[in-house]
Design a protein around this nucleic acid. Sequence first.
DNA 1: CTAGCCCCTAGAGGCGGCTCTAGGTCAACT
DNA 2: AGTTGACCTAGAGCCGCCTCTAGGGGCTAG
Lengths: 138, 138
Amino acid sequence: MLARMPDAAAPGLTISQVAERTGLSVHALRFYEREGILAHPVRREAGGRRVYAERDVEWLSVCVVLRASGMPLPDIRAYTDLVRQGPGNEEQRLVLMRRHQERVVEQMARLSESYDLISYKVRVYEDLVEQGGEARAC
Amino acid sequence: MLARMPDAAAPGLTISQVAERTGLSVHALRFYEREGILAHPVRREAGGRRVYAERDVEWLSVCVVLRASGMPLPDIRAYTDLVRQGPGNEEQRLVLMRRHQERVVEQMARLSESYDLISYKVRVYEDLVEQGGEARAC
DNA sequence: CTAGCCCCTAGAGGCGGCTCTAGGTCAACT
DNA sequence: AGTTGACCTAGAGCCGCCTCTAGGGGCTAG
């Protein structure tokens, strides 16, 4: 065998497979686990190796999106804790998500303002370069 | 006098005035200066205190926007260097700005994808909370 | 048996970007 | 004369988020 059998029937995933699928590094995966960013404890093979399930990949993919949109790890952790506790705390999850949603909206607004300035600068320099004038720009 | 005269005629600005106007902290301003993020050297009063001009505020405001949109300090520094060198390198400035523009576009795209997921989650939890059902969500 | 590879833990290290501290100067008010 | 307060420098420290190292285990192929 080339590698530890993926075992198509009950697909336990190795850490590096999960890394590949989530885009997180192997190191980051172990780090996230230490930080409590996993809704369910990871199973371990004899020998101590992590065996991930599909749902872990799904969960981590959500986390990747949350991170990518700037949710801090402590918040992701809090959210994870709520999910781990199971049904009954949906209001709290909603609060967390809404707060993050607002932050994302703000971010998008700031970003598009910045974009306007940057585009303006680009236009200015394009004109300046195109006609090689002796004008100066800031 | 309450404070060092702002002197409306030839308006030299103190560091704290610049901090207030740019939104940067006094510490950050000194740090930026050390890092070469100022197109023109700041004048100094007898006693060594910085005396900023309006154009410094303008320049720093641009930098704030660039930072806010995720341009790393080394890039801002490179841009500053080009500007400091004066006219003649507009192509290079254009390259820098265009590259950043692309990054901003990517960022906006990623952010709006994230926004979709987050909004979906918010909707799911809203429904769940509203009708207090016994359904479970991830 | 050895080599190669993937995995493990615990903890150190690094990077970006500030932020703060220590110790001092100077000018202005009281 | 003393106090206040804004400023100075050099450099240490901090926070978030990983990333890497050291030291080790164990399977599998050749």
